[in-house]
Amino acid sequence: MSSAARKRLVTALLLAPAAVWLFLFLVLPFIAIVVFSLGERAPAGGYQPALTLAQYANLPARAAAFWNTLVLAPAGALACLLIAYPVAYYLALKVLPQRRLLLVALIIIPFWTSLLIRTYAWMYILGGRGIPAFLELVGLPDLRLINTPGAVLLGIVYGYLPLMILPIYISLERLDRRLLEASADLGATPFSTFFSVTLRLSLPGMMTGFSLVLILLLGEYLIPTLLGGGKVFFIGNALVDLFLQSRNWPFGSAIAVALVGIAVVLLLAANRITARLSGARQVDLL
């Protein structure tokens, strides 16, 4: 065997396990839900082969779930962005380098810590025996916090804030400080330096964070379930219902395909906006 052929063989063997995994558990499942979404519900639940767009035509039946998700997910992502930016700015530009590592690690830790337990903590805090019980002591009775859209929004910000801070921090940390000095030397006020240099150069990080958080939020299930208490329904709740309870798999598949479609459109739009505004690509997380 020639050395070039041998080299190619080794490369192929190294990639083979991951390729099999990606094919069996990503590509094939995705083809399966597209096929299912074109089928019909079997009388006893499940799937019956067909070739129809009826499931997609039926999407408005779950309009409430789409509406809630498409309002609360962008609102939550925007709230995350507004809170995350000052934190990322502070970490990247205002903190002494020797303290920075610890402070960044403290942002990474909650991101990898059970979202279920962290969301549950808020059930405890917002629930009848949490904050409302304390407020009653100071004379504010009958305040309802849990099972409201506000509680879901709070849970979203709490759960996804770290994921928004990290990419913005990375883009600000890589920023060439000399540009800021140059801007100041040329007579720009700190205010205009921030808007025309800092903000602009950190735009790729902001867009990465925003699109990542938004896409993950589109599929969120735990937060609306635990903090919305069945009153605030997301697409994720509709999917759990259709797959695990009412067993209408073709309709559920159509919703899942629609969700992925929305995510792809958002991602393309975010890329386009970033390219137009800053001429740079998005930041890779890591």
Partner: peptide, 16 residues
Amino acid sequence: AIVVPGVVIGIATLVA
């Protein structure tokens, strides 16, 4: 694999 929400991965894997 990283960006697609878990709920879609779960459903698609179940169906397949």
